[in-house]
Amino acid sequence: MRESLKRKIIEICDKKVASKGEDAGVSFYAFFKNKNDDPELLMEAAEWWIMTHQLDHFEKAIKIKAMIQSN
């Protein structure tokens, strides 16, 4: 996964936890605007989320952040 996407995921996860607490959930769509302006990046996130790690649609933001940081 490219570094720019990793940084964005960590940033969004941090914001979710700060606003909603440790139980805040995210889906991979949370890392993108409501328009598909970068389909390649969206597919990269989807592949990591769905195919590589077989995650549920919503996961805890702290879990996703930890997974990103461990790679």
Rank of each mutant, 00 (worst) to 15 (best):
W49K: 05
E44G: 03
D37P: 02
I68L: 06
K20A: 11
F32G: 06
I12S: 01
A46S: 09
E47T: 15
K33G: 14
K8R: 14
A66S: 14
F32L: 00
D23E: 13
N71M: 14
K8I: 06
D14F: 05
Q69M: 12
K35Y: 15
S4H: 09
H53M: 01
A66R: 12
A24I: 00
N36L: 12
A61C: 02
Q69F: 01
D56M: 08
I68N: 06
Q54E: 12
M1F: 06
I9R: 05
K65T: 05
M67V: 07
M1S: 08
A18K: 08
Q54K: 14
H53S: 02
S70N: 07
W48K: 03
Y29P: 07
I12W: 00
D56Q: 15
E40P: 03
H53L: 08
P39D: 03
E59K: 10
A30G: 02
D38H: 08
F58Q: 11
A45Y: 02
E40K: 12
R2F: 05
N36K: 10
D23P: 01
A18W: 01
M43C: 12
K15R: 12
V17C: 00
I10V: 13
K16P: 02
E22Y: 10
E22N: 13
S4R: 14
M43T: 11
S19H: 09
S27G: 10
K33L: 11
N71L: 13
K35G: 08
C13D: 03
S70K: 14
V17Q: 00
K60N: 04
K63Y: 09
W49T: 01
S27V: 06
K8Q: 09
V17T: 03
M67H: 07
H57T: 15
E3L: 12
D14C: 04
N36I: 12
N34C: 12
L41S: 13
W48I: 04
M67Q: 06
V26E: 01
D56A: 15
S70H: 06
D38T: 11
N34S: 13
E44N: 06
S70Q: 07
